[in-house]
Design a protein around this nucleic acid. Structure first.
Length: 182
DNA sequence: CGGGAGATGGGCT
DNA sequence: GCCCATCTCCCGA
């Protein structure tokens, strides 16, 4: 699923207008043999959404001030999700600049959504959207291109974790300048 | 540009 | 108490 989500459009229809970006970087967090996954120690109040139906948003609070956005990928009872790490901005770029407090600054487009908390800020994704369906609501996934072929996907270790550091579970579109890091 | 310190609060041991 | 799927700012090159 982390591979399949590359190329999808993540869209948020807000009162300020449509904001969207093309998914260029993801990470998988697995239900088995993956101590870096929030679901690894079983279901809790925080991780309940991960154990719910697929196609829903799992949004968690991190480092005292940021949120990260995931797509739940497995059937109910299995805690698994894909972290969206970077987007290529498409619609509502002016809104994203305001949301990132970058309006009027000479910020390169590639730094607008090149990180999991940055894209959450840019798309105005709040804690209130934790658990919502991503199929038909104001926050949703849209198929924008044909599936990205494996030849055009780079696989690396995941970013910023202190356990299970060697698993090859980070994926990004080869050649994209919008990823969070090389 | 690249590296390092500091911010800041919920979750879990 | 300590950890944390991060970001911004500031420094030097």
């Amino acid at each position: 699923m982390a591979r399949d989500l590359l190329g999808y459009l993540l869209v948020h229809e807000t009162s300020a207008g449509r904001i969207s970006g093309r998914i260029v970087e993801t990470e998988a967090y697995l239900s088995e043999d993956d101590p870096a996954c929030h679901a690894h120690r079983g279901e809790t109040k925080r991780t309940a959404v991960m154990f719910g139906p697929p196609g829903h948003a799992y949004i968690y609070f991190i480092y005292g001030m940021y949120y990260c956005f995931n797509v739940v990928t497995e059937k109910p009872g299995v805690g698994e999700a894909v972290l969206i790490r970077a987007l290529e901005p498409v619609d509502g770029i002016d809104i994203m600049m305001k949301r990132r407090s970058l309006a009027g600054k000479l910020t390169p487009l590639r730094s607008l959504c090149n990180g999991p908390a940055k894209l959450v800020m840019a798309l105005d994704i709040g804690r209130d959207l934790n658990g919502v369906s991503l199929l038909n609501g104001p926050l949703r996934l849209e198929r924008a291109t044909k599936k990205i072929s494996d030849d055009n996907i780079v696989v690396t270790k995941r970013v910023g974790i202190s356990v299970a550091q060697d698993l090859p579970l980070r994926f990004y579109i080869k050649g994209s300048e919008f990823i969070s890091k090389k």
